[in-house]
């Protein structure tokens, strides 16, 4: 039977497994974020589809780090010169066009000390791989968050024959099942996606550890504290970058 208890119990087990198997990688990412921030860098976050939620969860909240930038496909329209019609063209899917990743990358103020977090459950879609590849080519540290079960079960689709995890300096496995849905049912399909929950836990944990490391170094924390003047000044510091 599918019910809330079953979801709660299986989710709890999954989160235990995620922490136990990935804690060292989470620590490595937090260290990389600390070093980036101490060099006045920004962490650029790019995710396909629902994966974008990871960046949203750790941004613009009490105690959240300001130097986090979310790269979004809609930036092509709002910040670039792509028309809505071209962006929404179902016959010529925009994100599959050649050179799209480069165009997105070039929209932003990216500096040498910045790092990238690129998220995709399947790790086979073109644009996420292209962004990770571009970041690497430009000398940036690249963190990948993916479902290793899912990605290893899929054939690569990228012209390089590679999958996203192969571009990571650090790879975090969100431990999600193949297809993302956690619970088996009596018939047709599995249900209850877990990647967002897992990804958000990963994000919050590494953000917290980053703050702890920055504090230990005596670095002035670039976090929102609820004081309007402080928060506005901090956001102005990273204006145009995050």
């Amino acid at each position: 039977m599918i019910d809330a208890r079953r979801f709660k119990d299986e989710l709890s087990q999954l989160l235990d497994h995620l922490y136990d198997s990935q804690k060292d990688n989470l620590e490595t990412v937090a260290q990389a974020m600390k070093e980036c921030i101490e060099k006045e860098g920004v962490i650029h976050v790019f995710g396909s589809g629902h994966s974008v939620g990871l960046g949203i969860d750790i941004k613009n909240r009490l105690g959240s780090l300001v130097p986090i930038h979310i790269m979004e496909m809609t930036d092509f329209v709002t910040k670039g010169d792509i028309t809505v019609e071209e962006f929404m063209d179902r016959k010529n899917i925009f994100e599959r066009k050649p050179g799209v990743a480069r165009k997105l990358y070039d929209l932003y103020d990216i500096r040498p000390q910045d790092i990238f977090i690129v998220i995709s459950n399947s790790g086979i879609n073109g644009i996420v791989i292209d962004i990770a590849d571009l970041a690497k080519q430009n000398g940036h540290k690249v963190v990948i968050i993916t479902s290793m079960k899912h990605t290893l079960a899929e054939e690569p689709r990228h012209p390089s024959g590679k999958k996203l995890y192969e571009f990571g300096d650090i790879v975090i496995d969100n431990c999600g099942p193949h297809g993302d849905a956690l619970l088996e049912t009596d018939g047709v399909a599995k249900v209850c996606s877990v990647s967002s929950i897992c990804n958000n836990c990963i994000a919050q944990a590494i953000a917290a550890r980053t703050i702890q490391l920055l504090k230990a170094d005596g670095y002035e924390l670039p976090i929102l504290n609820g004081d309007e003047k402080h928060d506005k000044e901090l956001k102005n510091k990273y204006e145009g970058r995050a």
Binding site: S12, D16, Y19, A205, A208, R209
Partner: peptide
């Protein structure tokens, strides 16, 4: 470890949400 602390808090909240509202 603050990372572990966060994961434990999430699990406790998931249990609380279920126990109080199933």
């Amino acid at each position: 470890d603050v990372k572990k602390e966060y994961f434990e808090l999430i699990k406790s909240k998931v249990n609380e949400a279920y126990d109080t509202q199933h």
